[in-house]
C-alpha cells in the first residue's frame, strides 16, 4: 500500500547551509494492507523524520514514497488533499497538536470545512459523535472544551477520532503514548490495535521496545538514519541478527528477566568518528571487522522476510 524507496533526508545547517546532517539515508520498506509496522529507534535515529516525510510535512532530499502506486512528492494540492483523506498522523505531544487558544473540537470543524463542506450540521455532529465513541470517549464529556481542560489521553483519542472522520487507510502514530501516564497508555495502544479491525494500517513509531512488541506485526530497527534490521516482530526480537539489535534487546529493562551482571559502557566517543565510509554502527560494534569501516553494508534478506544490514551475516 505504502512503499518507500531509498528515501533520504539531508538537513542543511549553519550559515549558507554548508553543514549537512543526514537524518535518513536510503531507507526502503513497505507497509501492507491491515498491517501494523513499528519503526523503532533511539533519539537521533530519524524515526520521526520518516513519519513526517510520509505525511509530506517536510520535503524529501531523494528517493520516492508511493502510496497505492502514486508518488506523493509529485502530488498537486488536489491530489494531496485526497492523500490526506487516506493517510493521517498523530504525534507525540497531545497538547502541542491543539492550537491552545481554540477549543479542542475545532480540529473536527477543520476536517468538515475542508473535506465535507456540503455535509449538514446535524449529520456532521452525528458523524463526530460516532467517531468519538469509536475511540472510547463520551461526546458530552469532551466536546466544547479547551485543550487544557482535557487529559493527554483524551486528546490523543481526539486526534485518532479526527482521523476516523476521513476515509483513513494508514495512520502514522509517532510516539503517541510516550507522554501519557502508565495506567492510561495501554488503552490507547489497544485502541490502535483495534483500528486494524476497521481495515487500517498503522506505522507505529516508538523508542520503547516493549510497546513495539506488544502491537506490531513487523518491526523495523533504525540506527542513525539507516535500517539496521527489519522483519517479523517475533523474529527480530527473539532472534536478532544485527549486533545493534542484540545490544538493544539485552539492554531494554524487562519485567521477566534481570540484566546480566556486567557493566558494558557504550563506547559513545567513537561513534562520531566511524560515520565516514563504512557501517555507522562499526564504532560501537563488538563484532566489527575490517570491511565494516570501509564499506557500508546493504540491507539483505537473511531469511524469508527478515532483513539485516550487517557484514557479519
Amino acid at each position: 500500500m505504502l512503499s518507500l524507496e531509498r528515501v533520504t533526508k539531508i538537513y542543511r545547517l549553519g550559515a549558507f547551509g554548508l553543514k549537512k546532517l543526514v537524518a535518513v539515508r536510503d531507507v526502503s520498506f513497505e507497509i501492507g494492507e491491515r498491517e501494523i509496522v513499528s519503526l523503532i529507534g533511539e533519539s537521533g535515529s530519524g524515526k520521526s523524520t520518516i513519519g513526517k516525510l510520509i505525511l509530506r510535512l517536510i520535503p524529501l532530499t531523494s528517493g520516492t514514497i508511493r502510496f497505492e502506486g502514486m508518488d506523493i512528492s509529485a502530488m498537486n494540492s488536489r491530489c494531496l488533499k485526497d492523500y490526506y483523506r487516506k493517510v493521517q498522523g498523530v504525534f507525540q505531544d497531545p497538547f502541542a497538536s491543539f492550537n491552545p487558544i481554540f477549543k479542542a473540537d475545532r480540529i473536527f470543524r477543520m476536517v468538515h470545512d475542508e473535506f465535507y463542506p456540503k455535509m449538514g450540521a446535524r449529520e456532521w455532529s452525528e458523524k463526530v459523535e460516532g467517531a468519538l465513541r469509536a475511540v472510547g470517549l463520551n461526546p458530552p464529556d469532551v466536546l466544547n472544551k479547551f485543550p487544557h481542560q482535557l487529559s493527554g489521553g483524551q486528546l490523543q483519542r481526539f486526534l485518532v477520532a479526527r482521523a476516523l472522520l476521513l476515509d483513513i487507510r494508514l495512520l502514522v502514530a509517532d510516539e503517541i503514548i510516550s507522554m501519557l501516564d502508565a495506567s492510561t497508555r495501554v488503552d490507547v495502544l489497544n485502541l490502535l490495535a483495534d483500528l486494524r479491525a476497521r481495515g487500517l494500517s498503522i506505522l507505529f513509531i516508538t523508542h520503547d521496545l516493549s510497546l513495539g512488541y506488544y502491537i506490531s506485526d513487523r518491526a523495523i530497527i533504525l540506527y542513525r538514519g539507516r535500517i539496521a534490521e527489519m522483519g517479523p516482530t517475533e523474529r527480530v526480537y527473539n532472534r536478532p541478527l544485527h549486533p545493534y539489535t542484540e545490544m538493544l534487546m539485552e539492554s531494554v529493562p524487562r519485567l521477566d528477566r534481570k540484566w546480566e551482571e556486567e557493566i558494558r559502557v557504550e563506547r559513545e566517543g567513537d561513534a562520531a568518528i566511524s560515520a565516514v565510509a563504512g557501517c555507522v554502527y562499526a564504532g560501537r560494534c563488538p563484532k566489527a571487522m575490517d570491511i565494516c569501516t570501509q564499506q557500508e553494508p546493504e540491507l539483505r534478506e537473511a531469511e524469508t522476510g527478515h532483513f539485516v544490514a550487517c557484514w557479519a551475516k
Binding site: A182, Y213, Y214, E234, D256
Partner: peptide, 9 residues
C-alpha cells in the same frame, strides 16, 4: 498495565 517484551496484544 505495563507492556512487556514477550506479550503481544
Amino acid at each position: 498495565s505495563l507492556p512487556k517484551v514477550g506479550v503481544r496484544y
